[in-house]
Amino acid sequence: MPTKVHEFTWPDRVVVGTIGLPGARTFYLQVRAGTQIVSIALEKQQSAQLAEKIDEILDQLITLEGNPFSIPASTPIELVDNEQLEPVEEQFRTGAMSLGWDPTTVQLVIEAYPIAEVEANEDGTIDDESLDQLEEAAEMLRVRIPVGTARAFAKRTREIVGAGRPTCPLCGEPVDPGGHSCAPSEA
Rank of each mutant, 00 (worst) to 15 (best):
V31I: 12
D81A: 01
E83C: 03
D128S: 09
V175N: 00
T94Q: 15
S39R: 07
L29S: 03
P146W: 02
Q49S: 08
T149N: 09
A137F: 13
S185H: 03
T105I: 03
R158A: 04
Q133D: 02
P177I: 03
I71M: 11
G20D: 05
L108A: 01
P177F: 03
F27K: 04
E135A: 06
L64N: 09
D127P: 07
P166G: 02
W101T: 00
E135F: 11
Q45V: 10
Y28V: 06
G17R: 14
D176V: 01
K155H: 14
L141S: 10
L64R: 13
R13M: 08
D127E: 09
T104G: 02
E119D: 09
T9Y: 12
R151A: 05
E129A: 09
I57M: 13
L58H: 04
T9Q: 11
G124D: 00
A96P: 01
Q36S: 12
V5L: 15
R144L: 07
V118K: 13
D176R: 02
P146H: 05
G179R: 11
V16D: 07
E89K: 14
A150S: 13
G34W: 13
L108S: 01
P87R: 12
A138D: 14
Q60G: 12
G179I: 09
T94S: 15
E129H: 05
L42E: 03
S47I: 02
F8A: 05
E119S: 05
G66N: 05
M1Y: 13
S47V: 01
S39T: 10
R32I: 05
V161C: 04
P166S: 04
D81E: 11
V80I: 10
E52F: 04
I54Y: 03
D102F: 08
G179H: 08
L50H: 09
F153A: 09
T104V: 10
T63D: 14
T149Q: 14
L99I: 01
S185N: 01
E83P: 00
E90M: 14
E90H: 00
V31E: 14
E135M: 10
N121K: 06
S185P: 05
T63C: 08
A120H: 07
I115M: 14
A183I: 00
S98P: 02
Q30D: 05
V109C: 10
A96F: 06
D12G: 13
P146I: 00
V147Y: 14
G179L: 10
T3K: 15
T3F: 13
Q49M: 07
P114R: 01
L58I: 02
E52P: 00
Q133C: 07
K4H: 14
N67P: 05
F69W: 15
A152C: 08
R142E: 14
A187S: 03
P174M: 00
R158Q: 15
I126R: 11
A24V: 10
